[in-house]
Amino acid sequence: MNALQFIETSISDGIGYISLNRPKQLNALNRIMVREIVSNMEEFDRDPQVKVILLSGNGKAFSAGADIDEMVNDDPISMELTNQFADWDRISLVKKPVIGAVKSFVFGGGFELALSCDFLIAASDTQFSFPEVTLGVMPGAGGTQRLTKLVGKTKALEWILTAERIKAKTALQYGFINKIVAPELLMEESVDFARKIAKQPPLAVRLIKESINKAVDYPLNEGMQFERKNFYILFASEDQKEGMKAFVEKREPKFTGG
């Protein structure tokens, strides 16, 4: 693998860490950086050592948005040919849970990256915003879709049209983050949370994530059928046998991931 320019990665204790690492630019996302993030997520997704992925930002902020300099001279044809958002699409194909640990500025592309995570733990000083409209454009990496699916049309339209900064408390109230923690403890609390998920039987975690994502996009009946198939599949796993046996024997289960 090529040396990483804009992110840092490591694996420890079942957690695959990805840290945005352009702190001087407040982790502004450029195209190579996005590709590095996505490629490493995919690599972690296939690595049996990794049970859960934890995405965070080095320095003051999670990410202040996309690298505008990179787009100043773009035209529709160049963008169609570059097809930069194809990388973003791959994030939603990651099967393992992705936790985002966010703080301070989570703007534009940084907000879209955060919304691509399955869980968000936010420092109390976090502010989310889609400022694209003030530059005469709009979110292009899923912002209008993901935010709307999470909070509904009313607030999504308001926030994206006004570019208003959304504070962590409001984000929690509208349910697009999971938890607010003190800024000093962001990583500690996020790792604690990641460990909890990493302890669960991985196949069940995988199929639960898949089923819940279907609930967002499928009609109810299709989703119910999908859920049922996944439920049945889990009965082929060793962890199901161990889990149920342990329950009957009134002891703690020992999951192996099989």
Partner: peptide, 12 residues
Amino acid sequence: KEEAEGQRIAGL
């Protein structure tokens, strides 16, 4: 709960 976080921070 918050207080416990605060004391954790102070303890560091």
